[in-house]
Design a protein around this nucleic acid. Structure first.
Length: 460
RNA sequence: UCCCCAGUAGCUCAGUCGGCAGAGCAAGUGGCUGUUAACCACUGGGUCCGCGGUUCGAGUCCGUGCUGGGGAGCCA
């Protein structure tokens, strides 16, 4: 007989004569002549209540069941006599797959996030983390569904890269050299002796690679892991995270902003429609304003304003900022949050940033002072998307690289795309975990990644 | 990397002016009950984060290190 998932039984329309479930005991309550056992198998947030009568031959074993133990239950799905649940399983046979001893660290009460972080291998067995990671799975699906419905192709850009493409943060070096005996040539490490015969790193962005595919397949995206060796210690940064990077040929900055806004709305709506039960846990216990926030995102039109106007608003603001604002300075976290949380009270897209604070590949505007960049700012998270129209004019691109003192040789292939049939194109990067934080109300990025990596921390 | 806060029972935390180490929950045992994070009683449980210092005496004061959290920078 095939195992029934608890998610299916809970939503059953009718009683079922014979069912078989396997799962982990959440709690056991003993009555005079029988026991209640709450079982969870991870298929959904809810448990199913099992009634184990004292007449069962294995009943003395049932009395020993502890929280965390694994069991196999056969029986009938019947209407529950008690309140609180529609169905319950009247057991005809219970097999203990394995017992969890009293040292099992998860109790039948809420634990702090910090405590659960120290046991990332067990925390998905809790309601909150089980819900978080089911939503993470659904959100991944929503990403692919969104792009596929719009005719985008999924491109697997490399995880190992040969050069510091884009300079987006510090890199993790990968090597097979013997670190106790590093080959030296001309008083420097001789990378010609290394695995790839040159320096190699983990990717910090798939953008430059995926641009090549936008310039051949049209509308494309990447969705994969990204690595930053920045020593940043905040609740919004991790050393390994997942990024979604769409790239569109024949698309300008306005089209880019349209896609970003559509994507965020679609992702939020997908989870609201498909993960109601799990989402409700976060709305009740994690962030009381969550549903209002999500409604606000799906229903409001994102405010779009040039960087110049954003600075003007901040200069007029009565609020005292720690960092002064002026044209040419990047917006600080406090500025971004003021714009989206206080001033507009909804997601905001700031565009046309000064060229001095943005990377070389962003398209120069006609004012020769700003570039066609755009950031999407959302309440509580801050920057969720960073993107731009890319510079498609070879001579302008090379001029920018010279200005910024970049060597052109490592980018020869990138520059060739501007030499052969170059067209306007645009794209952005969106932090998957930040989107998940926005949707669940979870405030620390370490709590939306199964096994998070941060500076000084790589347990599990 | 910088600034701030914290570290006491398995968990969450209290501990006054420097003077006998505490509570709730959990666990164990027993009881009661179609129960819902059940309930009642009893029992066990401590390297007060480490190291050094001040003191007759340090969980408490000082120095230092480690770990965790929050904020900033950097960014997604």
């Amino acid at each position: 007989m095939e195992r029934h998932k608890i998610a299916a039984l809970i939503h059953s329309e009718t009683p079922v004569d014979t069912v078989m479930i396997k799962g982990w005991v959440r709690t056991r309550r003993d009555a005079k002549s029988f026991s209640f056992i709450e079982i969870n198998d991870g298929s959904c947030l809810g448990n199913i209540q099992v009634i184990a009568d004292a007449t069962l031959p294995e009943y003395d074993q049932v009395r020993k069941l502890t929280t965390g133990s694994a069991v196999h239950v056969s029986g009938a799905l019947v209407a529950s006599q008690g309140g609180g649940q529609r169905w319950e399983v009247q057991a005809s046979a219970i097999t203990i797959i394995s017992l969890a001893p009293e040292s099992y660290p998860l109790q039948k009460k809420r634990h702090s996030d910090e405590y659960l972080r120290s046991m990332a291998h067990l925390r998905p067995r809790t309601n909150k983390y089980g819900a978080a990671f089911r939503i993470r799975s659904e959100l991944s699906y929503a990403v692919h569904q969104f792009f596929r419905e719009r005719g985008f192709r999924y491109i697997h850009t490399p995880i190992i890269t040969g050069s510091d493409c884009e300079g987006a943060g510090e890199l993790f070096r990968i090597t097979t050299l013997d670190l106790m005996n590093v080959p030296i040539r001309d008083r420097a490490v001789d990378y010609e002796k290394d695995f790839f015969a040159t320096e190699a790193n983990l990717t910090v962005s798939g953008q430059l690679s995926v641009e090549m595919f936008a310039l051949s397949l049209g509308d494309v995206y990447t969705f994969g892991p990204t690595f930053r060796a920045e020593n940043s210690n905040t609740r919004r940064h991790a050393s390994e995270f997942w990024m979604i990077e769409p790239e569109m040929a024949f698309c300008d900055l306005a089209g880019n902003m349209d896609l970003g806004e559509d994507f965020i709305k679609a992702a939020v709506s997908f989870i609201m429609d498909n993960c109601q039960e799990d989402l409700n846990l976060f709305a009740r216990f994690v962030d009381k304003t969550l549903m209002a926030t999500l409604e606000n995102i799906t229903t409001s039109e994102f405010e779009r304003l040039p960087y110049r106007e954003a600075v003007a608003i901040l200069e007029r603001a009565k609020k005292k900022f720690e960092y002064p604002v002026s044209f040419g300075s990047d917006l600080q976290t406090e500025h971004e949050r003021y714009l989206t949380e206080k001033h507009f009270k909804k997601p905001v897209i700031v565009y046309d940033y000064p060229k001095t604070i943005k990377p070389f590949y962003m398209r120069m505007n006609d004012d020769n002072e700003t570039v066609a960049a755009m950031d999407v700012l959302v309440p509580s998270i801050g920057e969720l998307i960073g993107g731009s129209q890319r510079e498609e004019r070879l001579e302008v691109l090379e001029e920018r690289m010279d200005e910024m003192g970049l060597e052109k040789e490592p980018y020869w292939w990138y520059l060739e795309s501007r030499r052969y049939g170059s067209v306007e194109h645009s794209g952005f990067g969106l932090g998957f975990e930040r989107l998940l934080m926005l949707i669940t109300g979870i405030r620390n990025i370490r709590d939306v990644i199964p096994f998070p990596r941060t500076p000084g921390s790589i347990d599990f």
